[in-house]
Design a protein around this nucleic acid. Structure first.
Lengths: 118, 118, 118, 118
DNA sequence: GTGGTCTAGACCACA
DNA sequence: GTGGTCTAGACCACA
């Protein structure tokens, strides 16, 4: 289910965070669903447990998952806010890029044509 | 003219590269125009000359500027290709982000509304 | 395994780049093999780690090696293209030199005799 | 007659040295022929007289030209040794490169085909 | 421990 | 003065 690209310059723990958030946002992971244990996931991906731990800690800090000692880690029950946050992040990034294109001399019409064609 | 943000996680030398490329792409820097010397720019920005040197070396490798020992650094005379490359980069980034929004459950119409409103 | 000549006018970082490329092209370094760490190689050669870092950075940009923070630097898995590129470089250099010899008044036959004797 | 490429990474004074040596070796400049004065050549090429001076000084040191105060600079009367030296330089460079190709796994036959085809 | 960035400062070739 | 290379050494993120 999870996969990482060690050659990618995005840190592994961030890759894991992104995947979990995306799986939640796209409905692959449901509210309250249990995640693999730190050790299990580390074993499956062949990487250091510390790296998974870091991802989980960060996700808990962001309110995306809840970790309960002795029981495991679970997707939060309020996933709608995560979806909204994810969408907003991307929309803002796109808007910034559209402004850059304007500065590079493209009109609204040209931009529209380029990003929606193909 | 140039400015950097030391807090930003983007390395300083990359910030400088981006700024110069954008200044060229937007016509602020013209073909064959001389850039500030490595030392001058370092002094103006209050950073180490090595960092500017690295930016200039990278820009020369990319064919954006030409550096001549004893004379200075100059914008290449073929800037159109730089503008085109810059535009393409951004367009591709936007397309990728639009696909992410689709995966997050937004329709084409909703995406369109969000990124072009305001 | 590696060695440098500080007297040589070729910069040290280029000497290292050339050696690594040649070791790969001649099969001494295999695909995915791990290279000495930046600090280790610097220590072995008695030079500054920054100089090795520069060589490794350049090699990664050329697609010859892959560097992963926290793990190390590794020969790319696609080394055939490196070998081909290396061969072409040298062939072109020889052809240029043969033309120079022709301009210096040597016939094809004389050139052939000179460069293949002993 | 003379020309320089300021963008080229070969120093200007070396470009001038190379051109004069090649003109001699190929018969364009004859024994005892007078060269342009330092100032004249600097003016024609639009560069600093110091740079030409440096080239002439080097050429005199190598025995290629003779400079006489108040009269000018002249091609040496023993140009055969220059031609021979030039030829030898190039032949040695080619031999080195052929050895590199051998190390890269090419047979004599393959090398021969590559460098004499086209 | 591993690579990546940056500062401070020296020295070089070249114009 | 101009770019290019290198050393010495610090600090960072990551595994």
């Amino acid at each position: 289910m999870f996969s990482i690209d060690v050659q990618c310059r995005v840190p592994i723990y961030e890759q894991i965070i992104n995947q979990i958030e995306r799986f939640i946002a796209t409905g692959i992971l449901k509210s309250n669903e249990q995640l693999p244990s730190v050790r299990q996931m580390a074993f499956d991906l062949g990487i250091n447990p510390n790296t998974i731990q870091r991802a989980y800690t960060e996700l808990e800090r962001k309110g995306v998952i809840v970790s309960i000692v002795g029981k495991g880690s679970f997707v939060t029950d309020n996933i709608q806010s995560i979806i909204d946050k994810k969408r907003n992040e991307v929309v803002i990034r796109i808007k910034d890029d559209i402004n850059i294109l304007k500065n590079l001399g493209l009109s609204n019409k040209e931009i529209h044509a380029k990003i929606f064609k193909d």
